[in-house]
Design a protein around this nucleic acid. Structure first.
Lengths: 255, 255
DNA sequence: CTAACATTTTTCCAACTGGTCAAAAATCTT
DNA sequence: AAGATTTTTGACCAGTTGGAAAAATGTTAG
C-alpha cells in the first residue's frame, strides 16, 4: 500500500547470542564433575571454560527471546520462570539447566539491550550536517520503537524500578556517550548551525518522544482510535517530530 | 538559593479520599452478618450502604498512600500486601479488612490517578493565547512530573502492561478529551496562530517529554551527573522545552 | 453501663514460586 | 556399538504470598 518512508532496519534478530564478554558462567553439573575428576594438577590451567555447544547456544537464544517477551510485558518480579519456560517451549528445570538463576536471564538481557540501545546515538557523526544527523537519529530511534517495542518496554521497566541492574552502566558508559554527543551538539551551536540550547535536554527529548510510541503504545492507539491508530501512526509521528525539532510551533511564511 | 520559576502546586495531597463514585464495595463481615440477620424484607431497601466511618476513611487514605509508594516502585505483581501493610503501619489482615483484595487497592488508585492525570489538559482554554496556553500546559505537566513522580510511574507501569485496568477509560474519557483539545489546536492552526501540524502527536510529545523526567529520573540523573542532576534540572528542562516547542532547533536571528 | 457494632490480632492454609536432585533419555565420540 | 557426555524429565522442597476464620479488643449510641 502506502510506501513506507520509515524503513525497517535489516536485522530482525535483536536478542543476539552475544559472544560472552563476561564468560557466560555455565558451570554445568557435568562441568563441575569433570573439573573435580579430571583436574588434579594444582596450579594448572584455570578450569578451561569448555566452549558452548550448538544446542547450548540455540537454547539460550530461545530462552532469551522468550524471556524478553515475558519480562517486557510483566516486569522482572511479575514474570515467573514457568511462564518463560512455557513460551520457550521447555520445562522449568530444563530452562534452569541453561540459566541457573532467573536473575541471570535478566542480567544477560539487560546487558545486550544496553548495547542495542546506545547504538543509534553512537552513529550521530560530528562531521555530518547537523539537521541531517539529528533527523536521522530521530528516525532511527523511532524505528526502534516501532520494530523493537519489547526491548523498549524492558528498558522502561528497568528505569521505572530505578535501574538497579544497570545503574553503573548508565553512570559510566551512557554518561560518557551522551557527554561526547553533547559536545558535538555544542560545537554545532557554536557554529550557529543549530540554535543554542541545552544539548542534554535535547537528547532527552528525542529519547522521550520516540520511545513514547513503544512504551505508551496502548495509550497512543486508544487516543488515535481505530481510524488513525493503525500502521500509519509511525509515519505521522515521524513527520510531526521532524516539524517539531526543526521549527517548533511558530508559524512560518510559506516558502 | 536560585529562585524557583517552576512553582509548586499548592496541594500535596494527591491520593484524595474519593467520594465513592463506584460505591466502595466494602461488605465487612459485620455488614454481611447484619444484612443476613436484619433484612428479612424481600423487595426492601437494597442493602443501605452504611456510610464510611471516620476511621475507615482515614485508614483507607493511609493505605492508598502506602500502596502508591509501593506499587509505583515495584509494579502491581512486584508488590506484596505485606509490604504495603508495613509502609501503612498496620498488619496484613488489618489492611485486608479495609480492602478485601489487593486488586481493589490498585483499582482505586488507578481511577483516582486518571482524574488527576487529565486535569492539566482540561485546563487548556480555547479562548486563551495559543502560546501561553501551550506553554502553561507544558509547565503544569512538568510540575506534576516533579511533584508527583510516583503517580507518574504508577501510570507508566500500567501503560507498559497494556493498561488492563483502565483501557476503557482511555478509549472513552481520555480519547474524548484529547479529541476536544485537538479541535482547539486545529482551530488555532486554521487561524494561523500556530503552525499546521498533527495535533494528536503534538499532545503526545508534550506528555512524553514531561513525564520522561519522572519515569526515567534515574537515567536523567545518571547522565547529568552530580553537577547538573540536582534540583535545577527541572528549570533547565522547562527552559529547553519552551525553546523546543516554540522554535525548534532552527537558529533565528537575535532580536 | 452495656449491647451492638467496628477494628485489630492471632492463627492458619492452599497455591505459587524459585530452585534442587537423581535418574532417564538423547546425543556425540571413537 | 559402546562408552562418555550432554540434555531432559519428574518428583520434590522450602519460602513466600494472597487471603480466610475466628477470637479478642475497642468504641459508641442509648
Amino acid at each position: 500500500m502506502a510506501p513506507r518512508k520509515l524503513k525497517s532496519p535489516a536485522s530482525p534478530k535483536v536478542v543476539a547470542s552475544e559472544p560472552p564478554p563476561s564468560p557466560a558462567r555455565r558451570q554445568h553439573k557435568a562441568d563441575a564433575k569433570a573439573a573435580k575428576s579430571a583436574a588434579p594438577a594444582k596450579g594448572a590451567a584455570p578450569a578451561k571454560p569448555r566452549p558452548l555447544t550448538r544446542i547450548q547456544r540455540e537454547k539460550q537464544d530461545i530462552i532469551l527471546e522468550a524471556a524478553l517477551e515475558v519480562f517486557s510485558a510483566h516486569g522482572f518480579r511479575g514474570s515467573t520462570i514457568d511462564q518463560i519456560a512455557e513460551v520457550a517451549g521447555m520445562s522449568k528445570p530444563n530452562l534452569l539447566y541453561y540459566f541457573p538463576k532467573k536473575e541471570e536471564i535478566h542480567r544477560r538481557l539487560m546487558s545486550e539491550l544496553l548495547v542495542t540501545w546506545l547504538a543509534p546515538l553512537e552513529e550521530m557523526r560530528a562531521d555530518g550536517d547537523p539537521f541531517v544527523e539529528i533527523r536521522s537519529y530521530i528516525r532511527r530511534k523511532l524505528e526502534m520503537a516501532r520494530d523493537f517495542p519489547r526491548q523498549s518496554r524492558l528498558f522502561a521497566n528497568e528505569m521505572l524500578r530505578g535501574a538497579p541492574h544497570i545503574i553503573d552502566m548508565l553512570e559510566i558508559d551512557l554518561k560518557a556517550l551522551v557527554d561526547e554527543k553533547a559536545q558535538v551538539l555544542m560545537t554545532w551551536m557554536d557554529q550557529g548551525k543549530i540554535t543554542r540550547t541545552d544539548p542534554y535536554h535535547l537528547i532527552f527529548s528525542i529519547w522521550a518522544t520516540t520511545q513514547h510510541y513503544a512504551d505508551f503504545d496502548v495509550q497512543v492507539r486508544a487516543v488515535l482510535g481505530k481510524g488513525r491508530g493503525g500502521d500509519g501512526r509511525f509515519e505521522d509521528a515521524a513527520r510531526y517530530l521532524e516539524q517539531l525539532f526543526l521549527y517548533g510551533l511558530t508559524p512560518r511564511p510559506r516558502a
